[in-house]
Nucleic acid binder design. Structure first.
Lengths: 136, 136
DNA sequence: ATACTTGCAAAACATTTGCAGTGAG
DNA sequence: CTCACTGCAAATGTTTTGCAAGTAT
């Protein structure tokens, strides 16, 4: 396979990178495709994934896993933060606070390199609404 | 489709339930299949998924989502704990310690109902091995 | 020109469902 | 006997790869 090497500057690359950077929230692959197609209409989903993998390898983008949904992607250089997942509207929010001060604890011999915290519940927006009413 | 209803006691059901209960760590569907096949060799993966869905619906089992890997399943009635994901062998371990003392912080108006903490790194077992080697 | 990138289609995976045969009650 | 449950294969839905054509340098 002609592996993606990132040696050239192309409109597709910029479109994918910009889509992720411009959104104020983590996007799914399909959402990135939709946004990037405003710049490059012929863009294919495979190309989005290729750039995604490249950006993940270079640690310019990180994956945000959401229970029961497809992965989302966000810029990696954001300040350290965690996520809040609203079970009502399915939105994911950034949470600035980190419960760890220093390295998280693990059993003897385990080397901790990273940590992820996800809070689940009802977001401020949904908390104000009548249960059962519409959302978006 | 003949939906699974849980009305009958079968060896397959016991094998799946026991595999999850006996493992001291969350198992993937394939891991459950492998373990349960020691009891029921002809067991099919589809049946594992059917029982999994049933057990999840009944809240006897919970899903543990891991970034960059397939979901794992563990008994629902375990004491509060978190997880460690080894990036080398892909195993998931239980971590007893919780960084939160009291309710986690969230922006005003947000109602936190649950939280999840996942540490990533190298497990004790893999840390002892030559880098690049494999196990399971 | 060279060889990296792209889009499309097909392949890979993980999970779900259709079906007809099996077996629990 | 019934009909829930099972295994297999086919269907889904998502992500990856092969390839020939397009293009940045």
């Amino acid at each position: 396979m002609a592996t993606y090497r990132g040696k050239r500057k192309t409109p597709q690359r910029d479109a994918v990178r910009d889509a992720i950077a411009a959104a104020g929230r983590p996007l799914s692959a399909e959402e990135i495709l939709a946004k990037a197609r405003k710049e490059v209409p012929a863009l294919g989903l495979a190309t989005v994934y290729r750039h995604l993998r490249y950006l993940l390898d270079r640690k310019q983008v990180v994956t945000v896993e959401i229970s029961g949904s497809t992965p989302r992607f966000e810029p990696a250089q954001l300040a350290h933060h965690h996520h809040f997942h609203c079970r009502e509207c399915d939105r994911v929010y950034e949470i600035a606070e980190c419960p760890f001060h220093g390295q998280p604890h693990a059993p003897p011999g385990f080397r901790v390199e990273n940590h992820e915290v996800t809070l689940t519940g009802i977001c401020e927006r949904c908390a104000r609404q009548v249960p059962g009413s519409r959302s978006s």
